[in-house]
């Protein structure tokens, strides 16, 4: 472990000779080249240790890590399916239709695309808390705070505007005359809509990837509504925050690498699916 991270004093440059015990960060005076070099080597060592630990954790199928990965996939996978189920039809409808209030809806959707996740988490927290408008109902369909259900609700609210917005853009990118031509060939409106969506599939897949990327890497909302409870609502992002705070950088890096791998694999899978339909 590095001197800085372990709390050991670092020797400073000539101008700071009068205070050899001063710690890094307490003064604006630059540390010596040796100290900088040591810290650089330490950071590389941390990353290297993280890589090794990630490999070991994966190789030995560490039950706690597997449990965290499973919860992450369960929460983000369910949220993604629900977001796609809401976002793709909504985006297609906004892309095809012309009606009074459409502009307002599109403006709201764009606002939703840029909504800070932690604010979404706050709203969901307030809604689902015991004194909140939904939480006070005690209805079976209302998920309770600090459960996977509450995390899914928060992630759906984060992801579906992205899915809908990108789907709308993709649908609008297809020549509007195509739909009319298909209808003139005897397609029902539903068949023509599906055909146009199929033409816009690249954009629709991008919308799903964007939605997944936004929720698998999200930490603020799931931390607020999930509570990061070990064995229950702890996901990769919240576990990374926790391990970093504890100073377990190797484990944090290992979890981060697993998160990156999951994100990469899901994107590859979706791009392959897209390729098969091309």
């Amino acid at each position: 472990m590095s001197a800085a991270l372990s709390g050991q004093p670092i020797r400073f440059a000539r101008r700071d000779r009068g205070h050899p015990e001063r710690r890094w960060g307490e003064s604006c005076i630059r540390p010596t080249r040796d100290a900088r070099s040591r810290r650089g080597r330490c950071a590389i060592n941390e990353i290297w240790e993280g890589l090794k630990q990630a490999a070991l954790l994966l190789w030995h199928l560490d039950p706690e890590v597997l449990q965290i990965v499973a919860v992450s996939l369960r929460v983000s996978g369910t949220a993604l399916l629900l977001s796609a189920a809401i976002g793709i039809p909504l985006g297609a409808w906004l892309g095809f239709s012309r009606f009074v209030g459409r502009r307002l809806m599109v403006a709201l959707l764009y606002t939703g695309m840029g909504f800070p996740p932690v604010v979404v988490g706050l709203f969901v927290y307030l809604l689902l808390s015991q004194s909140g408008p939904l939480g006070s109902l005690n209805a079976p369909w209302v998920p309770r705070l600090f459960t996977v259900g509450a995390m899914v609700v928060a992630q759906v609210i984060i992801a579906f505007p992205l899915v809908a917005g990108f789907t709308m853009a993709a649908v609008k990118g297809v020549d509007p005359n195509l739909r009319q031509q298909l209808i003139s060939l005897g397609a029902t409106h539903w068949q023509a809509t599906l055909a146009v969506l199929r033409e816009a599939r690249f954009g629709v897949v991008v919308s799903v990837i964007a939605g997944f990327g936004s929720i698998i890497s999200e930490v603020g909302a799931v931390m607020l509504v999930g509570g990061n409870i070990q064995g229950s609502t702890r996901v990769l992002t919240t576990a990374i925050v926790l391990e970093t705070r504890r100073g377990n950088f190797s484990l944090a890096i290992a979890l981060a690498l697993i998160l990156l791998l999951l994100s990469f694999l899901s994107n590859v899978l979706m791009l392959r699916l897209q390729g098969k339909t091309a």
């Binding site: 005359n177 195509l178 009319q180 031509q181 209808i183 003139s184 060939l185 005897g186 055909a195 199929r198």
Partner: peptide, 16 residues
């Protein structure tokens, strides 16, 4: 009724 008529457009758009 619609399926009794078919139109060919000036700029044909085909599916990918």
């Amino acid at each position: 009724l619609r399926r009794r008529v078919t139109m060919v457009f000036q700029r044909p758009l085909l599916l990918t």
